[in-house]
Write a protein that binds this DNA or RNA. Sequence first.
DNA 1: ATTACTGCAAAGCATTTGCAACGAA
DNA 2: TTCGTTGCAAATGCTTTGCAGTAAT
Lengths: 146, 146
Amino acid sequence: MPATDQFFQKLKQHGYKITPQRQAILQCLLDHPGHHSAEEIHQIIKTSYPHISLDTVYRNLHTMVSLGLVLALNFADGRNRYEIATEDHHHHLICLSCGQSEQIDFCPLRELAEEISREKNFTISRHNFEIYGYCRNCQPARKERG
Amino acid sequence: MPATDQFFQKLKQHGYKITPQRQAILQCLLDHPGHHSAEEIHQIIKTSYPHISLDTVYRNLHTMVSLGLVLALNFADGRNRYEIATEDHHHHLICLSCGQSEQIDFCPLRELAEEISREKNFTISRHNFEIYGYCRNCQPARKERG
DNA sequence: ATTACTGCAAAGCATTTGCAACGAA
DNA sequence: TTCGTTGCAAATGCTTTGCAGTAAT
């Protein structure tokens, strides 16, 4: 069975229809691991499905986030990134120069979640953790002393 | 000497002038600990300084962030929050219901920074870490089984 | 046949920018 | 006097929304 089936199941369960646009969006996220902006996803899909509108991409990403099929990441540049919600949870190093990002498997909540629930009586829904800087290919010029 | 002096020093060092608007913004951030949106800061300042424009607030927050005097936090609701850069570093629990936030002293970089620099050859500039959920006063209704 | 979904265009919101007048140095 | 700064208004960029036609069930 295609990898998209489990996602379609969930959509159907909640009364959503399986449209070609939704199929294209899911397929795009599965084919392109990592996080992408709505605009990027739109551009990718348009190569194989020229008719899709950016509005529809936004609308469906929002729907899929609400169903937990997709994760929305708030990066510092003012636009959200989206990635397929798979079982492996991770965070990102984001290069301020070239924009490339790299995954890190470490998650601060692994050691923190239980304590927060207990001590602060806070029910955690989600979190974000991103590290910005310069990657190995974009090392900034060394600062002068002074 | 006023608490704002060290900040004015830094502005002067970089060729910036000390304007009443800048004074008001710094004073506001010092008087109101925690993170606030540009709009909130503008509203607060207007009570004592009615003439300041929102543009100026944005422009100066940006300047102060670039000098390291102020921290910019990217929250999930699409607007940035700003707080005075003091020596005590912390992160936030943010309630999705009432919007209140609470500080946590834990910082994941304390244990991670050295490893990332070494293993990934990545120069860290900044990071963000926020936890969203429901605070003790806004606990969500318990989910039904199913 | 329903009811949800799409594309279009327009609106919304946070933030940025061009410009001429202004004010700190 | 000089050059950075301000306020205004307009523009920008990302995202959302109303609507009428369209398509999945």
